[in-house]
Amino acid sequence: MSKEDKTFNIMFAGVGGQGLMLLSAILGKAAVDSGFKVMTGEQHGLSQRQGSIYVHFRIGNPISPLIPYGKADMMIAMEASEALRYVEYLKEGGVVIMSNRIMPAVTETEQVALDKEKKTKYLTVEQIVEKLEQVTSNVVLLDSLDLAIQAGNVRTENSVLVGATVACSDFPIHAEEVRKAVLALVPPKTLDANSKAFDLGLEASTGCLQS
């Protein structure tokens, strides 16, 4: 992708408190440091945790802060059900990098808990992926929490997902620029764990995208 012509659109989705804004800041820094223009449409809104949140993230030659429906080249979801919540933005054949973590809403928990016959079950990652696959076959499902634990710090899930993102061949920013941005923006004490998490995400995703 040349730096002027095309725009690469990424839809970030997640749940309030997961660090979506940090993820957006990391890719923003990496893009700007690589000479790309960036524009985002962010949902800040109210400050409660556990709400559905998103960032429209656009690299290249963006004009509007909002990605049109069906034109996101990539979706990065820190929570699995939130990937499906914004599926209208995903391009046919686009790449989905998603965590397998589901944080059920309280209303869903209530339905599961109160069903005396125990027939009501939580929505599963498999059900979500099955729906996403009706838009694209490029779904990369990561056990981001497990990979973060492997990296030595449970709070490095962000870096796992960022690492997975750069494995995508269309992603316009060089992997090492992205790693630099990760290490510049995470707490200094966690540099090693974040670098490891980045590598683990990169490896895991490379495997998925080749298959």
Binding site: R49, G51, T107
Partner: peptide, 13 residues
Amino acid sequence: LKEILPERPPIFC
């Protein structure tokens, strides 16, 4: 596609 998706209403932290 989203018919299976439960709502995520705003909630106290």
